[in-house]
Simulated assay, not measured.
Amino acid sequence: MGKGTIVMAYSGGLDTSICIPLLKERYGFDRVITVAVNVGQRDEEIAMATEKGKKLADKHYTIDAREQFVNEYVFPAIRANGSYEGYPMGTALARPLIAEEVVRVAMEEGSHSVAHGCTGKGNDQLRFDFIFRMAGLEVIAPIRELNLTRDWEITYAQEHNIPVTVAKEKPWSIDENIWSRSIEGGKLEDPAYHPPEEIYGWTAAQEKAPDTPEIISLQFLKGVPVALNGQAMSGLDLIRTLNVIAGKHGIGRSNMIEDRILGLKAREIYEHPAATVLLTAHADLELLTLTRQELSFKRMVDDRWSELAYMGLVHEPLFLDLNAFITRSQENVSGRVDVKLYKGSCRVLGRSAPEGLYSEELVSFDSGALDQCHAIGVSAYYGIQARMNKKK
C-alpha cells in the first residue's frame, strides 16, 4: 500500500526534477504534487518550471508571490541594511516564503508530508526544514538522504527522460529571485578558479559597461524605496527596473568565500545590482536621519537580524523583536538620495531629508547661531580621566 500524497517545493531544476520519480520509487508515495513559487525569477524559468511540473508530477501549482516577497521580505531587509558577510542576501530571504506556500498547499491537499531537493551540505535544507517542522509536517529530502552526487543525478535524469538544462561540463546551479542571482557548482567550487563571463546574467563586465556615468535619484519613505528618478513605482517594478539600469553598469557582483550555517566554507558568486544600489542609498540616508546613538545600536541590530535571516529563522522570537525595533527606527528615514553609477561602482553624490538632523545654520563656520565660547567649558572636561590617568 502506498504512502499517499507528498507536496514538494519545485524549481524545475535538476535536483527537484529527479526527486519526483525518486519519491515514488524509493519512498513509495502514490502522488507527488509540485509547487513552484514565483519570487521574481525570469519569466522563462517560471514557465519552464510550470511546464515540467505539469508533465512530471501528478499535480502542479505555480504561485505568484512576487509582491509579497518584496513587501514582506525585501523591504524589511532594506530597512535592516540586510547583508551577510558583505553581500546582500537573496536566496536566504526567499526560502521561508517558498516553504510557507508549500505548507499552505499541503494543508489544502490534506498531505502530512512535504519534500525539497536540497543537499545535506548547504543552507537551504535548514531554511526549508525549519518552516516545515514548525507546521508539524514530515520532511523528505531525497538528495540529502540518498547521498546523491551531481553526476549521478544527471545520469538518472537522462535514464528517466527528464529534461535538464545542465551538463557535466557546465553543471552550474543557478538560483534567482527579484533581489539576487546566485551561481555555484562545477569548477566554481574551486576558490582559485576564475569564473567565466558566461555565468553572469544580470551584470555587464566592467570593461563592457558604458563609458558614460549615469546619475539616478531614489526616494525613500520610512526606510523603503518608493520612487526612481521622480517616478513613483511599486517596490517590485522599482527593483526590476533598477536591476536593469545598475546591471548595465556592471554593479552588484560578489565573488567570495562564505561561511555556511553548518560551518563549511564555500565559494559563492552572486549578482545583485538593484540590491547594491538600494542598500548603499538607504544606509547613507540613515546617516542623515538617525541619531549617533541610534546608528551605533542599529548596526548591532542589523548584524543580528542579518544572521537570523541568513539562517532562515524568521519565526525566532528575537527576529520578531529586532524587526519591531528596526521598523520604529525608520519613522524619519524618508528623503532623496542621488547616486552615480559607473563601471561597477555605486557612489552617493548627495542626499536630503525633511527630518534630517543636519543643520547648515548650526554647523557652518560662518554662522553665529551657536556661541563658540560655550565649547570652552566642554573642552575643559573633555577626556579628563585619560589626562588624569596619564599623570600617574
Rank of each mutant, 00 (worst) to 15 (best):
M233S: 09
A192P: 09
E198N: 06
R181G: 01
E189C: 13
P195Y: 00
I251Y: 06
I257R: 14
I199P: 00
R240P: 05
E214W: 08
K168P: 00
P213H: 12
G186M: 01
L218N: 08
T212P: 03
F220V: 09
R181W: 05
S217M: 14
P163D: 10
P191F: 07
M256Y: 14
A205Q: 13
L242H: 04
V166D: 02
V224C: 08
G247L: 01
A192L: 15
W202S: 03
E207T: 11
N255A: 14
Y193K: 06
T212C: 08
T165R: 13
K248S: 06
L228T: 03
A192G: 12
Q231L: 14
V244K: 10
P225W: 04
S180I: 08
P163S: 09
N229F: 07
Q219E: 15
V226N: 12
I215N: 11
I239R: 03
I183T: 02
R181H: 08
Q231F: 10
L228R: 01
V226R: 11
K170C: 01
S180R: 06
L228E: 02
S234R: 11
L221N: 15
I245R: 01
G250C: 01
P196Y: 03
I162G: 03
P196T: 04
D237P: 04
L188P: 02
S254E: 09
P196N: 06
Y200D: 05
T203V: 12
F220G: 06
V224I: 15
V226Y: 11
S180W: 02
L188C: 10
Y200P: 02
I245Q: 01
A192M: 15
L242P: 00
G223K: 09
T212F: 08
K168N: 07
A227V: 09
E189Y: 14
I178H: 04
W172C: 03
K187R: 12
K187N: 04
D190Y: 06
V244G: 06
G223W: 04
G235I: 06
N229V: 04
P196W: 00
I251P: 02
L228W: 02
S180H: 06
F220S: 10
A167N: 15
F220K: 09
L236W: 07
A227N: 10
G185Q: 03
I199K: 00
G186I: 00
E184M: 14
R181M: 07
P195F: 00
L238T: 03
V164E: 04
E176A: 04
A205T: 11
G201S: 11
P210C: 05
G235E: 07
A167V: 09
I199Y: 00
R253C: 07
S182C: 12
D211T: 12
N177W: 04
R240T: 13
P225S: 10
E214D: 13
I199Q: 00
Y193E: 13
S217H: 11
E197K: 09
W202P: 00
E169H: 08
G230E: 10
I251L: 05
